[in-house]
Amino acid sequence: MAITLQFAGFDTKDLGVSTSPLAELMAMLHVWAEPDHHFDSSAQIQEIARQLDDQLIAEFNELSPLWARFRARFFFPLASDKNQIFERELAVLAALPLETFVSMAAEGIRGFSKGLPAAEKLLHDQSGRAEFLETCRSRSLGRFELADQLLQNPPEFRSRIIRFLADCWSSFFSREWEGLFVPLGGAAAQLAGKLQRADPATVVATLSVTAKAFPGLSEVRFDKLQQRRVQLSGRQLLLIPSRWIGNHLTVKDHAGYPVIVHFPAQAGQKEVLKIQQVRDRLSALSAESRMELFRHISAEPMTTSELAARLGQPAAQISRSLRVLREADLVVSERRGKLVYHRIDTAIVLRLGPDLLATLTR
Rank of each mutant, 00 (worst) to 15 (best):
K212E: 14
P65L: 09
Q51S: 15
L232I: 06
E62Q: 12
M291E: 10
R158Q: 15
I245S: 02
D280K: 07
P97W: 03
E176K: 12
F112N: 14
R323E: 15
G268M: 02
Q269T: 04
S319T: 15
M26Y: 06
L307R: 12
A315P: 03
G216V: 08
A308E: 02
G142D: 08
A316M: 06
R326D: 08
M28G: 12
L151W: 00
A211S: 14
G108V: 01
D40N: 12
Q46C: 09
G193C: 13
D253E: 14
S138I: 02
A308I: 04
R335A: 11
F294Y: 10
I3W: 03
A265R: 05
S42M: 15
H262Q: 07
D14T: 05
S41V: 01
R129F: 01
F86P: 03
I344E: 08
L56F: 13
G179K: 13
F144N: 03
G246W: 06
A309C: 04
V278G: 03
E62N: 03
D329L: 09
W169A: 10
F173V: 12
F86S: 04
G337S: 10
R336F: 09
E288I: 14
D36W: 12
N83C: 13
D11M: 11
E327F: 08
N153C: 05
A68H: 11
P65E: 05
M28P: 00
I45C: 02
V204M: 10
F60L: 07
R88L: 11
G9N: 11
L98H: 05
A130G: 05
A201E: 15
W244K: 05
F75L: 13
N61D: 12
G246D: 07
F157Q: 09
V17I: 08
A33Y: 10
L151N: 01
G111Q: 13
R163P: 00
V324I: 12
T361R: 13
I162M: 06
E271K: 14
A287W: 05
Q152C: 11
S174P: 07
A33V: 06
A166V: 00
D148N: 12
A198M: 15
V332R: 14
D329G: 03
A27L: 07
E292A: 14
G9M: 08
R71N: 10
E89A: 10
H124S: 11
S171N: 05
S41K: 13
W67L: 08
R160C: 05
G186P: 01
Q126E: 15
A118G: 10
T206W: 00
M291W: 14
A118Y: 06
W169F: 08
T304R: 15
M291A: 14
V278H: 02
M1Q: 10
L325N: 00
P117A: 04
G128D: 01
L339I: 09
F144P: 00
M26P: 04
W67M: 06
L350N: 09
H254W: 12
W32K: 09
P154G: 07
